[in-house]
Nucleic acid binder design. Sequence first.
DNA 1: TCGGATTTTTAGAATCGTTCTAATTTAGAA
DNA 2: TTCTAAATTAGAACGATTCTAAAAATCCGA
Lengths: 152, 152
Amino acid sequence: MKLIPEFKLEFDEALEKMGLRPTRQREHVYGVILEKRDHPTAEEVYARSKESMPTISLATVYNCLETLIQSGLVRSVNFDREPTRYCPNLQEHAHFHCSKTGRVYDVHLPGAVIKTLEHLLPSGFKIRNFELSFDGEAPAAKPSAPKHPTDS
Amino acid sequence: MKLIPEFKLEFDEALEKMGLRPTRQREHVYGVILEKRDHPTAEEVYARSKESMPTISLATVYNCLETLIQSGLVRSVNFDREPTRYCPNLQEHAHFHCSKTGRVYDVHLPGAVIKTLEHLLPSGFKIRNFELSFDGEAPAAKPSAPKHPTDS
DNA sequence: TCGGATTTTTAGAATCGTTCTAATTTAGAA
DNA sequence: TTCTAAATTAGAACGATTCTAAAAATCCGA
């Protein structure tokens, strides 16, 4: 789970800024999330992490996820009554959760829409974060065709 | 927790339509949620319900909330790592969660915005439901002044 | 490079919110 | 009524997450 230099730099800087230490485990977990950009749960991240770092513990995975979120490298995604999922937060986007397959899709949010949403609140309300998620059914996936929005 | 006739009718019809029985407990829980339109958790609904129906159980509260949701009388609201909250679902709206006070505010969603959001998904994606929630800090509330958006 | 303060990791226990189980009660239909 | 199905209940069980306390790793300054 070696990070490519670009992400390694971003990783070190982000933790540095928060006064957190860039440990092997944190880097590893970040690597796992970057590797396959589906939206794994903590348990899934744990399972994948153990493949190449068998001694890592579940508690550490939770700890690492927490520090990655604090550092802004990863964000958490919640769906009704489902365990929290995690994704590397490149850019602002929404999520679509298919209730049939459980699969999660990224949904691109145009800047104009984001601005519109932020203006829904009266002045004085400071937004730290917002989450937009859809629940429904995705079209049956044609196995080898490109899917929209971004598959996961 | 007696429902006023208008809500009683709505209640009976909604359950009827789902083939569910309009029991004392269901009506009571619905009344509790209508009474004070904050966004109580299941535990809070349980505590309030017990005041005038001391024998009701927590399991029943969960069951009732579930059937009320199925009937479309109530909707659930989720915030990151917080227990599920419940609100009577009059109309489509978003939520703002103040991380300082824990208070939840309703945010009105103009029809145009709803339409915009629904169009973010490519054709083929069937939306059953969507949730938009903000997290941040609400302005310090002046105790007796009207608040925006709808207080809770 | 070493030593010590501080942070992080770890395993396992504990906690929280929620769902399940099995027995009892209730509602609604015949 | 009487029967059947649905709903309620208490408590156990569960899944996800957090906590605890001890061991290990990291960082900093000498």
